[in-house]
Simulated scan of single mutants.
Amino acid sequence: MFGIDSTGVYPIAPTPFTDGGAIDFDSTDRMVDWWGEIGATGMTVLGIMGEAPKLDQAESLAFVERCIRRAGRLPVLVGVSAPGFAAMRGLARAVMDKGAGGVMIAPPPSLRTDDQIVTYYAQAVEAIGSDIPFCIQDYPLTLSVVMTPRVIQRIITDNPSCVMLKHEDWPGLEKISALRRFETEGSLRRVSILTGNGGLFLDFETERGADGAMTGYAFPEMLVDVVRLQAEGRRDEAHDVFDAHLPLVRYEQQQGVGLAVRKYVLKRRGILASDAQRKPGSALTAAAKAEVEYLLERLARRDPRAARLPG
């Protein structure tokens, strides 16, 4: 279940669209089934890479409901960040009524001081209700809000319904160490830490105390492998698997085209029927597609899961 003991991998769901722009529920079913088959322990929908702002409220709820129904035993975390608390509350209560395991809240870019950040989360909890478990989304590269370890400590301490941190600072290894040190010293209760950034630093994040990953990557099996191998103490094997995928992980992390790369590979893998994004969105040039194909060919030499792609 979603909570302070959550471990493993929560893939971030891209929202599948048809070429005409409608939500593709067949691809959604296929994607959710696949995550269960490869060993994901949960999933996150309506995240930043899920094109959530491009969905209207009815579409958002329909997509969430489809994922929850298809996920079965896997907990579903739903992004509910919104410009105002009324919209956040409405979405949060609605998705919990549909069976979500919890919600994720990102700070608005306008926050600058530590007190502003702490106050914002207190007000968000007041708005959605303290009975809803929530995850802090710490993503300063995109959101431009910098949360120090002490700020995160204050948010967790002040809000018992906070059960998870999505750690997506860059660089952020020392932040993970600081938070785990607070726990060891007794000044912070334990929460689950799942990391993002496409898995770009997962090899060492798990060694610093992260419980797993909450991110998107077109080969989430690698993320599952790394988390599992590190938990089993098989450090070199974990790094070997990670190193094989690193060139593609890096390529997928490009600003502006990262989602296009991910959707293209997921289409090549037969998970998505289309790699379409809703406008505004980027598309891969012929040169970029050729580079991705080259990376897939190289990856296939070390990981057979990249070979014989059906798309």
Rank of each mutant, 00 (worst) to 15 (best):
G3H: 10
I4S: 07
I12V: 12
A13R: 01
G20R: 13
G20H: 11
G21F: 08
A22W: 09
S27Y: 08
D33K: 14
W34Y: 15
W35A: 08
G36A: 11
E37P: 01
T44F: 09
T44C: 04
G47K: 01
I48P: 00
P53K: 12
D56K: 00
A58Y: 12
A58L: 14
A58F: 13
A58H: 12
A62I: 06
V64M: 06
R70H: 02
L77C: 01
V80N: 01
V80F: 04
A82M: 06
G84R: 03
A87N: 03
A87S: 13
M88N: 03
G90E: 07
L91F: 04
A92E: 03
M96W: 10
K98D: 12
G99I: 06
G102D: 08
P108D: 00
T113H: 13
D114M: 08
Q116L: 10
Y120G: 00
A124E: 09
G129V: 11
G129T: 10
S130E: 15
D131I: 06
I132W: 07
C135P: 02
Q137V: 00
S144W: 09
V145G: 05
T148N: 06
P149T: 02
D158C: 05
N159C: 07
S161K: 09
K166I: 00
W170D: 06
G172R: 04
E174Q: 14
I176V: 12
L179C: 13
E183A: 09
T184N: 05
G186A: 04
S187D: 09
S187I: 11
L188R: 04
R189Y: 02
S192C: 01
L194Y: 00
G196M: 10
L200H: 11
E205Q: 15
T206G: 12
E207L: 14
G209K: 03
G212S: 10
T215S: 06
Y217D: 08
P220K: 08
E221N: 12
L223H: 14
D225H: 08
R228G: 05
R228A: 15
R234F: 13
E237S: 13
E237A: 15
D240T: 15
V241P: 11
F242H: 14
D243Q: 15
D243K: 15
D243R: 15
D243T: 15
L246S: 10
Y251D: 08
E252D: 12
G256M: 05
R262Y: 01
R262I: 04
A273Q: 07
A273L: 09
S274L: 08
D275E: 12
A276Q: 11
R278C: 03
P280E: 07
P280T: 02
A283K: 13
T285H: 13
A287C: 02
A288S: 10
L295I: 04
A307Q: 14
P310Y: 09
P310T: 14
